[in-house]
């Protein structure tokens, strides 16, 4: 399944990268070109999510789960790939549900930050995939410089997992609270 996974991942990578560029253009401009490109954002993100899911599922079939879960590099790839898929799906849902309102006021800068984070996730996912297939890149050295050796499994200590649990609860609560408040 590894060769099919390698073929499939090209699609979400291309689609999400293009989507990130569209967000960049739209966040920086209200011109006709920017608005026109924004019209394809939802289709780009939707296709990206669909083909990303397909690549993800095929990727899961490359090795038995027991094997993948025992390899630090495969664990890392699986972790960041999962986050990438969920994260870009979040961007799709947001743009889809909120429509062009996401380009109003400060929200456009929020979108820009989110697209930047998504691009970083995507880059790391691709780098780790390259490592697994025997083609490491210099991105791993950058990550090492920034504090993560990709040969070490990315995991959090228990206390940070607890903190994470609190954040997971707090974030929707803030949303609910804000929704009930006047503008």
């Amino acid at each position: 399944m590894a060769p099919y996974h390698a073929v499939l991942v090209h699609f979400p990578v291309a689609l999400w990268t293009t989507a990130a560029l569209v967000i960049l253009v739209r966040a920086l401009s209200d011109g006709a070109l920017a608005k026109a490109s924004d019209r394809v954002l939802v289709p780009l993100l939707a296709l990206g999510a669909l083909l990303g899911l397909a690549a993800y599922v095929v990727g899961l079939l490359v090795w038995p789960l027991e094997t993948a879960a025992a390899s630090p590099l495969a664990r890392n790839h699986l972790l960041v790939a999962t986050w990438s898929l969920v994260y870009w799906t979040l961007l799709l849902i947001t743009r889809w549900m909120q429509g062009e309102a996401v380009w109003e006021g400060v929200t456009r800068w929020v979108m820009l930050v989110l697209a930047g984070l998504g691009s970083i996730l995507l880059t790391i996912t691709g780098t780790l995939g390259g490592h697994l297939s025997g083609n490491p890149t210099a991105v791993s050295r950058v990550l090492h410089f920034l504090g993560w050796d990709v040969y070490d499994t990315f995991y959090l200590p228990d206390w940070v997992l607890l903190l994470l649990a609190v954040a997971i609860i707090v974030l929707p609560v803030i949303g609910l609270w804000g929704r009930r408040r006047p503008a």
């Binding site: 979040l90 849902i93 947001t94 549900m97 909120q98 429509g99 309102a101 996401v102 109003e104 006021g105 929200t107 929020v110 974030l171 929707p172 609560v173 803030i174 949303g175 609910l176 804000g178 929704r179 408040r181 503008a183």
Partner: peptide
């Protein structure tokens, strides 16, 4: 994502 969309929905 839930929090963000709740906040943005209110705005929109």
């Amino acid at each position: 994502g839930i929090g963000l969309n709740l906040l943005l929905a209110r705005k929109g």
